[in-house]
Design a binder for these strands. Structure first.
Lengths: 249, 249
DNA sequence: CAGTGGTCTAGACCACTTA
DNA sequence: AAGTGGTCTAGACCACTGA
């Protein structure tokens, strides 16, 4: 039985481009899903027809489709076919920074750098960053605002040779500033907890003493496993929470 | 130049097994990494030699290696080779349940089911579970202990036809009980926040009133995007925090 | 039974890294 | 220049689904 409802994708591939064909295909389909040209539940052509029409081999077409399955945008079943996944499953968002989060949700982030100092490495930080104790590291203490209100107090430690300048940290988030230095964060270990605000913390965050705070401690690493950053953050629980989308292995 | 330090993996593949060759290979290498037979930083054979030695095609060997790269256990660089990733990058652990977490860290979990009722669906739950308002859903309220101390108060809503029994929930975590019914959670959306304990919450959790609580609201879906579960949990911040490992896209 | 995706092969050529 | 992984092809056979 010929496929009754399969959508014919309009995709132009540039076979002479240095951009891999599977990548061009995946991006094109991804765009169609994001714009709604392909609706959730809609059926795609089978991979052999798709490959033939786009003049690529079947493994290449498969690879493109598999990329989108891994992203949760497509669902494939043997004997059935390929469908666009329900909208809510699309796109895992992970490892974004607070700055990006705020900017992305339309709130206006701003940062005050309260402290920017170079000093000997404390034992705890030494462990994380794998820098010998006593060697110099940069300590940064920042107050983050959203729409003019204080939101979070963040203390970070970085190795001297990779630390962004004070000015960069005022204009960008930490991760964006690191990226400008060619440093990509690949993995982070986080612990999220809660506690009551001290008097000093309450004052600086415009909360009452003993208000609820969200706490986050993070260690971040690059793709080679080098430790890049150690951070201890506190957030006003009245104004912020962590939203995450998790996927089963 | 012949490879100087590449480790020769001892892998036996069963070419007549229904288990895919790439999967057998990936599992074998994964096991060697986990047991320490392959140490972090160690170099593997190049993929062509590996494929030849194991009598599989190069794409099959590549696929096995790629699986482990996706898991963060191997790092590959063009022109350089394949190495075992630093230990801390191995294995993303996601979407585990509190019960599994506790059992895994050697603490003894226990559960009391405080309430198990069937009743009409509240508007908020109706939205999440995509069950018409007023239709019946199961509401479960559980108190979780670790090592004899109360740790968390959890309220969950599930569709009638998939809800585990009261007895199952006493012996297992919610996700394990669902799994026993053939239901696999594939994705969950979570929000983690903090607030102060009410008098009633403090009493039941053995905390002082206005102690800090961690809050978590979760919606869980299966692989087809069907809503499975809606939960609102509170944790004693003095006894628990969320540990997560995040990976950049 | 026809149609689908899942696995596998045996090559080819290219791009990047290191010395 | 040698060695590595990255991409791509053109087939083959199998396993599962649904009518």
């Amino acid at each position: 039985m010929a496929s009754e409802q399969a959508t014919m994708l309009r995709i132009n591939l540039d076979h002479s481009s240095p951009v891999p064909l599977y990548y061009q295909m995946a991006k094109a389909i991804e765009k169609d899903i994001e714009t709604g040209a392909l609706a959730p539940g809609e059926r795609l052509e089978n991979e052999i027809a798709l490959a033939g029409r786009l003049r690529v081999s079947r493994p290449t077409a498969r690879r493109a489709l598999q990329e989108l399955v891994d992203l949760g945008m497509l669902v494939r079943k043997r004997g059935v076919g390929t469908q666009v996944a329900p909208a809510r499953v699309h796109r895992r968002v992970e490892l974004t920074s607070l700055f990006d989060d705020l900017a992305g949700s339309g709130r206006k982030p701003a940062t005050t750098v309260l402290e920017y100092s170079v000093g000997p490495c404390a034992p705890e930080v030494s462990d994380t960053l794998e820098i010998p104790q006593g060697e110099e590291v940069v300590t940064v203490k920042r107050l983050r605002y959203a729409d003019g209100e204080p939101l979070a107090l963040m203390v970070n430690h970085l190795a001297l040779e990779i630390a962004p300048t004070r000015e960069e940290l005022t204009d960008l988030g930490l991760y964006a500033a690191l990226r400008a230095h060619g440093i990509e964060i690949h993995m982070a270990q986080q612990q999220i907890g809660a506690r009551l605000a001290t008097a000093a913390e309450a004052r600086i965050l415009d909360e009452k003493p003993k208000a609820a705070l969200l706490t986050m401690e993070r260690k971040a690493f690059d793709v080679d496993g080098r430790a890049i950053e150690h951070g201890v953050h506190i957030y006003r629980a009245s104004r912020y929470n962590f939203s995450t989308t998790l996927f089963a292995q």
